[in-house]
Amino acid sequence: MLKATRLAKKLGQWWVLNDITLEVKAGEMLGIIGPNGSGKSTLLRLLSGEEKPDQGEVLFLEKPLHEYSLQERAKQLAVLTQEQVSDLSFTAEEIVMMGRHPYHRSFFGPTPEDERIVCRVMDETETRDMKLHRFNELSGGERQRVSIARVMAQEPKLLMLDEPTTYLDIHYQLAVLDRLKAWQKESFLTVIIVLHDLNLAAQYCDSLLVLKEGRQVRNGTIRQVIEPRLVEEVYGIRPVIVNHPILHIPQVLLTSNC
């Protein structure tokens, strides 16, 4: 589905990312984890085509990403960034409908199919009751859920999300990630997701890529990544790794460094 080879990005004289190689197969959910400042968001911008790498190449469906037009890319790939434009006065429903823009013909409004899709994703993200509310009047968590509904309305083959659980309480964190996982299975959706919470990453992702200081530390299965030595090396803590009693995956317990 998507393949990146030896990606690197410079900011001034500093390499903020260096020598990143990865491959995401169709229908897979890849989690990108690492400490603050490790280059996770920068990597997502390179993989989505928002920024160009200074070195290396990104292939999407075996074609260089930069060879796609913006409309072609928008029909295949949807991106949710951390940055929210909170002063938009559109209604929540209008924001979600923006996800259908790549499919609109000039001078024609939303089709009945567009409206059906928007209703469905607003139901799935529990945002239907706020559809007439102005986006700039919503809370941070509500805006996040509406933004997630917008990228879901785009119906992409590849979905990239940068910290989608930001601003969300525990209920909506699980609800959103459950919906993404279900969508992944139902539609054979490919997902690349940046997460801070290692336990959520282990529960929902099929594989993990670990970054530290702009470099790739490891790319592998959940058990290859969520293990004591690597977590201590990357995060500077001494974790206790336990097996989830129901899901049977590794989970991280934190202890004081004192």
Rank of each mutant, 00 (worst) to 15 (best):
L2E: 05
L2T: 01
L11M: 12
L11W: 13
W15N: 12
V16W: 07
V24K: 04
A26L: 08
E28D: 05
E28T: 05
M29A: 14
K40T: 00
L43V: 07
L44I: 12
R45D: 08
R45Q: 15
L46D: 12
E51H: 14
P53Y: 03
F60M: 12
L61P: 02
H66L: 08
S86N: 13
L88H: 04
T91D: 05
E94L: 00
E94R: 03
I95S: 03
V96S: 00
R100Y: 04
H101N: 12
P110D: 14
P112W: 06
D114I: 06
R116D: 11
V118N: 00
T125W: 00
D129L: 11
E137N: 05
R145Y: 05
S147W: 07
V151S: 12
M152F: 15
Q154R: 03
E155S: 14
L159D: 08
L161I: 09
D169G: 09
I170V: 14
A175F: 03
W183D: 05
E186P: 13
F188Q: 14
I193P: 06
I193S: 01
H196I: 06
G214D: 06
I222L: 14
R223L: 11
E227N: 12
E233Y: 06
P245S: 02
P245A: 02
I246L: 14
I246V: 15
I246G: 01
P250A: 07
T255K: 14
C258P: 10
